[in-house]
Design a protein around this nucleic acid. Structure first.
Lengths: 341, 341
DNA sequence: GGTAGCACTCCCCCGGCACGAGTGCCAATC
DNA sequence: GATTGGCACTCGTGCCGGGGGAGTGCTACC
């Protein structure tokens, strides 16, 4: 029994099942694919594939359906990411380049992915922690409030207000601003604490409170997990065709998607994958509500390996893996290019 | 035939249908409510109510179901908004007061409403147009970029970057900042254009480009419709119990909710209602996807009449109107109090 | 190893039927 | 005139049984 053909059979099953949503039987398989053997032979192969856990029958005397494991083998070995067509690429680039600011870029990207994949799209805001600081601004607001504005190289702007015990000294604020920018600009936020630690020494004890407060706020801001935001679009695609793809309604899926924590965990796990495109299939998401979904993401935001955040698409197990992977990767690349420019 | 009893019957039908999701018949009605008459009498009343369009039968030989018009009469005349209990109020206040900044307030509010109403919650960010300006800041970023930061009295912070044709003159920027704050602070954004118009005259022609650019950006920012953001939570509630409440899947509803434009239109229309709580039932939403939903909102953000934005809850036609109305109103009031404080 | 045939299983669809809930109408009653 | 009880009628729903079809596993054969 040829090992190669067995993999061909698995690929054919995945492709047919994705296309038709129907369990696929041996006869249909030989009819639709040039396998060169008879249904009976295929049946033997299918029995072996089932034995190994790559496919399963919903019930006796039904066709076969890929399992999580089957999809995994499919994406790992049976498919090559097909590049997008030139017009598609051009459209993606043009659409994203029209964006005005970071919010707009993110918004366009998420809509674009939803549109391209016809699935739920996810875009993570550029992580503060992994961005480099471009500028720090201190803005007195009234006598006793100071607004701290951080601007990153990805265009993200964060601000915090500090309430002070004493009235502000404009001169000191000016000095602090200058110092901050010297020691901070161009650095990754993760390297900042070291640079900031010595800052306090440069000022007299009378200003210690101010310096401390500002430094504290800057560090706190970059450490704040909650500022890791994700944006969604296309949730309506989950309900397509009466939510046929989800046995137990789409409620749990929507719940999972609203839990930013869940998505952030997944995104950070997938960042470890070291692949241009990361895939989580069914159970691999490690989350109850996402058991019947697959999640495909790609990093963006830095030319070399380390990305500052991720974009992705979530759909039913029964999804177009090659298509989704290439769409997600394409958008991630354009994002990277735009944020760099 | 008593007109009063007929309204009682309508109320009973709405209440029963909301509670059971089953069309309600005459017998069930007399059993569950102390109407003091026989089923046959109720049948006559029901025939009259149907004649007037307040109720309808899904099919012959089924019970009655309220129509949009029936729900409308119910909320207008047959229900009084019951206040929330003291512990509930206390919990709401406590939860909202823990918030750190405006984003956090909005986030907490939207989750709170979703939780309280067990429906989709909507919170609109305080409108720029209707807020007052607290402070304008100009921040040079590099030699040729200027960051404009607007801070409103509701704590909202907006920023834009300007690219300039010539290098910046720090002194002029300083003067402009001072002037801007004098003429702008405390004003509603809608009154600003007038105040800004005369500003250009105070500077020499060499700085005209700069002044013009800054004024342009400020005006543009406040005019920008797209900056009217809304935040959602609880979309998973739509799918509760297999989306029984929505004949044609929840897809169209999700689509409508993702269209910020749709929600913003509705919110602004409802702001005209001059009621503490505004209600749109089914068709009244004027949107295809929301035909089978009702939308309840309340304004917040200003002690006297004019609110700066709205909060609301969207659920099936068959929803707990009194409960939702009181929850939405309560949250709106606490929001107002917190933003003022 | 591949193939053909065959018996078997099980889902799905359909028609028929009884049941129950609910109505509308009418005549009788207060 | 409003209310009521009775009654025939309608229609959706659940249940049952049977036919058709798709697909499988097994075995014997090339």
């Amino acid at each position: 029994m040829s090992e190669d053909r067995r993999l061909d059979v698995l690929r054919a099953i995945v492709e047919d099942y994705v296309a038709t949503r129907e369990p696929v039987g041996s006869r249909a398989l030989v009819e639709r694919h040039a396998l060169g053997v008879s249904p009976a032979t295929i049946r033997n192969d299918m029995a072996a594939l089932e034995e190994s856990g790559y496919i399963a029958q919903p019930h006796t005397s039904a066709g076969r359906v890929p399992t999580d494991k089957g999809y995994r083998l499919f994406v790992d070995r049976l498919t090559t990411v097909k590049p997008m067509s030139v017009p598609e690429r051009r459209a993606i680039g043009a659409f994203l380049e029209e964006a005005q600011d970071l919010d707009d870029v993110v918004d366009r990207a998420v809509r674009l992915i939803a549109q391209l994949t016809q699935q739920v799209a996810v875009v993570q805001y550029p992580s503060l922690r992994r961005s480099a600081l471009r500028h720090v601004e201190l803005v007195p607001v009234g006598a006793r409030h100071l607004l701290v504005v951080l601007i990153t190289d990805t265009g993200r702007v964060e601000q915090r207000t500090i309430e002070l015990g004493a009235d502000l000294d404009e001169v000191v604020v000016g000095q602090l601003r200058a110092r901050l920018n010297v020691s901070a600009a161009g650095r990754r936020l993760s390297e900042l604490p070291v640079a900031l630690a010595e800052l306090a020494d440069a000022f007299g004890p009378s200003d210690a409170a101010l310096v401390e407060a500002v430094v504290g706020v800057v560090e706190e801001t970059l450490a704040q997990e909650s500022e890791e935001r994700v944006v969604l679009a296309g949730t309506a695609y989950l309900a397509r065709g009466g939510a046929v793809d989800f046995a137990g309604s789409i409620g749990p899926v929507l719940e999972a998607l609203e839990e930013q924590v869940v998505l952030l965990r997944l995104l950070s796990e997938m960042a470890e994958d070291n692949a241009s495109v990361a895939v989580r299939i069914g159970r691999e998401t490690q989350h109850e509500g996402l058991l019947e979904t697959s999640f495909i993401t790609s990093g963006y935001g830095d030319e070399n390996g380390t990305s500052v955040a991720r974009v992705g698409s979530i759909g039913p197990l029964r999804m177009d893996y090659p298509g989704t992977m290439s769409a997600v990767r394409a958008v991630a690349r354009y994002l990277t290019r735009i944020l760099a420019g």
